[in-house]
Design a protein around this nucleic acid. Structure first.
Lengths: 332, 332
DNA sequence: TTGAAAGCGCTACCAA
DNA sequence: TTGGTAGCGCTTTCAA
C-alpha cells in the first residue's frame, strides 16, 4: 500500500479511500491510484483492515458439521453459504465425526480466527464450555441437536415425533415385530429417536423386544451386520425402522443380500438423494434440510446483526414420505 | 492481552510468550499468566498475530468447488479437510455453480483474506486472471479441469478415456445405437467426455447420430426430459451413456417412467453413493474421488511448504464398475 | 528470564 | 479534497 501511494504520488490515506470506495476523492486521483494498484498487483489485506477497524469482525462464519461429505451436512452447508453470499461472508467448514475433542479444538480455532458466528452441530454432550464465548457476544446457533448447559439459538426437528410417524405407519400396515436400527445412544438425536420408537409401540399396546433392537451402529456396514443377524434369527422382524439415513442404506443392502428386499418393510429416518429409485423405493421420515438451513442462517445472521432477544428454539416437524418400502405388509 | 499482562503483573511480551508456548518462561510466571487468561476469558487473536509475524500466512486455504452439496465436491472437500487437519489449517469453502463471475469474485475475496493456497474447480474457461496471484506466490491447484492460459498444478481424470471405456463396454454388449447425455459443451470435462464418446464410436466403425445426442443438460430433470424424448422417438436408442452422475440419475428416472428400466442399457460417468442399489444397479465409470482429493492436498501443501518445482499435471485413470445396467443387451 | 520499543498493514480522527 | 498521526493486537529485536 505504501508503494501504491508512492507510485500514485498520494498519501496512504488516499489509497485507503480509493480501495474502500469512500466518497470524497477526485476522479483524477482515483484513476491514478487504481492504475498504480493494478500495475503493482496490490491486494488489499482484509485482516489488517479488520484489525484496525476495531469492530473485531472477520466477515467469516464457522460451520461445524458432522461430516461435510454426508448429504445432510453438505446441504446444510450449502444453505448457509447461499445466505452468506449476499453479505460477502466466507464460511469456514469442518467435520466433527462425533468426536467431542475435535469439536472443542475446532471451536477454539474459530474463536482465535474471530469468526462472526458459529453454526454448530455438536458432537459433545454438554456445552458449558461455550459459556464464555457466548457471554462475550459470539453468536452460536445449534442445529440438529439442542444446547445443553448453555442457552443459545437452536434449530432441530421433532425426532421423537418423526420416529412415531414411522412406527405408526408400520403398525398400520399390520406389523407387530419391528426391528430398530440406531446410532450411538450418546448422540442426542439417536437417543430421542429410539425413545420415540419405544413410545409409539407402547402407545399401540405392542410389546417391544430388545432382541430386535440394535444400537451403536455407526456405518452402513454396521447396519448390514446387525440386520443380517436379525433376519437369520429364529423370530425375524417383519419390518425395520432405520433411524438414520446411512443405516437405512445398510438395511437396504442387507435385505438385498438376504433376498427379502420386497418382503420385509423398511422405513428410514432422514431422506437422501435417490431414495426414490432404490429397490424398492424407500419410505422415509423426511427432514426438510433446506428449511433447517434457512432457519439456521436466519437466526445466525440476525444475531450477527445485533439481535439480542432471548434464545429461540425452532423445532421443525418432519414429514412421512411414502414410496413403497414402508407399505409392504407382513407375510401370510 | 494488555489486561492479562496487567492482571498477571508481567509485560505484554511475556504473555505473548506464554500464549505461544515459547520456551524460557519460568513455570511460576507461566501459571500466573494462564490463570489471568482464563479469568479474563482472553482469546488470542490469530489475525493480529499473523499480521505481525509478517509471513503473510493465515493458516487457511480456500476450496472453490462447483457445489459443496453435490457428492463429488463434498468428498473432495472432505479429503482436503483431512489433510489440513494435522496442520491446523482451516478451510474456506464456496460453491461456484458454473458461474465464472462468481469464481472471480470469490478468488478475489480469498486473496484479500490471504489464504495460503487455493483448490480450484474452475467455472471459467480461461485463467489468465490468476497470473498475478500465481506470480506473487499463491499456490493454486486445479482439480477436475485443467488450467488454461496459466500453468499451475492440476489433478484431473482421463475423461476421454473414461468415455471410451463406457462406450466400448456398450458396444461389446451389442449396442449400436447409443444415446449421449451431456452437460454444457462450454464445460471442459463435458466437452472431453463427448469427444471421447464420438471417438469410441468412430474407432469401432459405428456411425454416430446427433439425433440421439443431447448436450447442455444441467440437471436430472433436463436429462429426464431429453431422454424421454429420445425413447419416444421413431428410432429410440438401445443404450444410454450419461456423462455426469446427475444426468445418470435423471436417466434412471426416465427409464423407470417409461417402464423400460431393465431393457435399455445405461452407463454413467462418475460414481455416487447408492449406485449399487438403484434398480437395476448402475454400471459406471468411476473416478476415485479419495485419490483425487489426496493428490490435490498433496500438491497444495507441498507448494505451501515451498516446493517450487515445475507445475505438475496429475491425470488419474477412471475405472469401469460393472453392476448390471450396462450389461443389458439390445432386444431381439 | 523478562521487558521496552518499534512496527506488521491498515483506518479513524483531526487538521490543512 | 487531501494528508499526518496514532494505534488496532500482536510479535520482533535488542537490551536489561
Amino acid at each position: 500500500m505504501r508503494e501504491v501511494a508512492a507510485l500514485a504520488g498520494v498519501s496512504l490515506k488516499t489509497v485507503s479511500r480509493v480501495v474502500n470506495r469512500e466518497p470524497g476523492v477526485s476522479p483524477d486521483v482515483t484513476a491514478r491510484v487504481e492504475r498504480a494498484v493494478t500495475q503493482l498487483g496490490y491486494r488489499h489485506n482484509l485482516a489488517a483492515s479488520n484489525l484496525r477497524r476495531g469492530h473485531g469482525r472477520s466477515a467469516m462464519v464457522g460451520a461445524l458439521l458432522q461430516d461435510v461429505s454426508n448429504s445432510f451436512s453438505a446441504s446444510l452447508l450449502r444453505s448457509l453459504e447461499d445466505a452468506a453470499r449476499d453479505r460477502d461472508v466466507a464460511i469456514v467448514a469442518s467435520s466433527l465425526d462425533e468426536e467431542p475433542a475435535r469439536e472443542r479444538s475446532l471451536v477454539e480455532g474459530l474463536v482465535r480466527r474471530r469468526v462472526d458466528g458459529l453454526l454448530l452441530m455438536p458432537a459433545t454432550e454438554r456445552h458449558d464450555y461455550l459459556a464464555d464465548d457466548l457471554r462475550s457476544g459470539l453468536p452460536i446457533v445449534f442445529v440438529d441437536r439442542r444446547p445443553n448447559g448453555v442457552d443459545t439459538d437452536s434449530v432441530t426437528v421433532d425426532n421423537a415425533g418423526g420416529s412415531r410417524m414411522a412406527v405408526d405407519h408400520l403398525l398400520a400396515h399390520g406389523h407387530r415385530r419391528i426391528a430398530f436400527l440406531g446410532d450411538l445412544p450418546t448422540i442426542q438425536t439417536a437417543r430421542t429417536r429410539h425413545e420415540g420408537f419405544l413410545a409409539a409401540l407402547r402407545d399401540a399396546g405392542v410389546e417391544s423386544d430388545p432382541a430386535v433392537e440394535a444400537t451403536s451402529l455407526r456405518s452402513p456396514d454396521d447396519a448390514i451386520a446387525a440386520l443380517t443377524l436379525l433376519l437369520d434369527s429364529a423370530n425375524p422382524p417383519t419390518a425395520v425402522f432405520a433411524a438414520r439415513n446411512s443405516l437405512a442404506i445398510g438395511a437396504i443392502r442387507a435385505l438385498h443380500h438376504r433376498g427379502v428386499a420386497g418382503q420385509v418393510a423398511l422405513v428410514g429416518f432422514d431422506d437422501f438423494p435417490l431414495a426414490d429409485i432404490v429397490d424398492p423405493p424407500l419410505t422415509v421420515v423426511k427432514q426438510n434440510v433446506a428449511m433447517i438451513g434457512f432457519e439456521v442462517a436466519k437466526r445466525l445472521f440476525a444475531r450477527i446483526d445485533g439481535d439480542t432477544s432471548a434464545p429461540q428454539h425452532v423445532v421443525l416437524t418432519p414429514e412421512l414420505v411414502v414410496r413403497g418400502s414402508g407399505e409392504i405388509r407382513p407375510e401370510q
